[in-house]
């Protein structure tokens, strides 16, 4: 095409008012303004172009140019480290991790798989457990509960380590399954527990900050390589700002969600000494993925060191 404007087609699953989409609107405004219209950003939200995994395929083949979502493992398996239980314990640690040199290396390694990743943020926030049986104080409280787990390896292995009866259900069936009692509970980011009305069909909310996830901004590498060096620099600059904005929105929202959910659900925060019991119980999860070759023990140690720096 001889056209002078370059189009960047981007898609994600979340609705327009979600922090992820909001930060991409910011990205569009800023990049179009600062590049003086040389790059045009076309955002598609609410999964109108496909689910997270379908859109991932489209970015891989170059039909679309960018996405953010659950398909990050295809950019680099090491992003799984960010999802490990208790790899970080709070927002401060989470932000230090995503801004660390370790994360920058993980971003760079994704080039091998055809992705350019200018920045990585934290996906939504921390996960929490909800259920209809009892407040979760210790790992023993989870034993034998029928818990819905997302169809992803880390959550399944994690659930098994904690002794729950894991049940895989697609998202669309979760509400009904919780309402009728096909499953007793589930775990999810607080924003999802609110947005998807899970609180309507649950009694207890237990906050442990046990896990979160990465939110790499995944761009088709071939597309990026065609940009002139000055546009590449500008693209990366705005992407870093957009991801920082996303993290800020997510962190602010999480506090609000906790407050709103506390009014709807009997909420407990797990004590530090009980958290140690959870850490101990979920250690096998680390080992499981190291043995599978997703990352090395050294990678985990470097991730942990980067937090304490």
């Amino acid at each position: 095409k001889k056209d002078t404007t370059i189009v960047f087609k981007y898609a994600n699953s979340q609705p327009e008012q979600h922090p992820r989409s909001q930060s991409m609107q910011f990205f569009k405004q800023e990049l179009e303004k600062r590049s003086q219209g040389r790059i045009q950003v076309e955002n598609y939200f609410s999964a109108v172009l496909g689910t997270e995994f379908e859109v991932q395929d489209m970015v891989a083949t170059g039909a679309l140019q960018g996405t953010r979502g659950g398909g990050f493992i295809h950019a680099n398996k090491k992003y799984y480290i960010f999802t490990l239980p208790f790899i970080v314990n709070n927002w401060d640690e989470a932000l230090r991790l995503v801004h660390s040199d370790f994360t920058k290396e993980v971003n760079l390694e994704a080039r091998k798989n055809g992705y350019h990743i200018p920045a990585c943020g934290i996906s939504q926030g921390f996960r929490a457990h909800t259920n209809n049986r009892r407040p979760i104080q210790t790992p023993d409280d989870l034993k034998g509960l029928k818990m819905r787990v997302p169809q992803q390896e880390v959550y399944i292995v994690n659930a098994q380590a904690l002794g729950v009866n894991p049940q895989e259900l697609p998202y669309s069936e979760v509400y009904m399954a919780l309402k009728t009692g096909v499953v007793d509970g589930q775990d999810n980011a607080l924003s999802n527990i609110w947005d998807y009305k899970i609180y309507e069909v649950q009694k207890y909310l237990s906050l442990s900050n046990y896990g979160t996830g990465p939110d790499p901004f995944m761009v088709n590498l071939d597309w990026y390589n065609v940009l002139s060096p000055d546009l590449q620099k500008l693209f990366d600059e705005v992407a870093v700002e957009a991801m920082a904005y996303s993290d800020q929105l997510n962190q602010e929202n999480e506090a609000i969600y906790i407050q709103k959910l506390t009014e709807k659900l009997e909420t407990n925060t797990i004590t530090p000494e009980n958290l140690d019991k959870f850490r101990k119980a979920t250690e096998p999860v680390y080992q499981y993925f190291i043995e599978k070759g997703y990352f090395s023990k050294d990678d985990v140690n470097r991730a942990k060191t980067s937090i304490s720096d």
Partner: peptide, 10 residues
Amino acid sequence: ATTGDYVSAA
């Protein structure tokens, strides 16, 4: 050819 080696989630 491009995405066939992506592993499934579960």
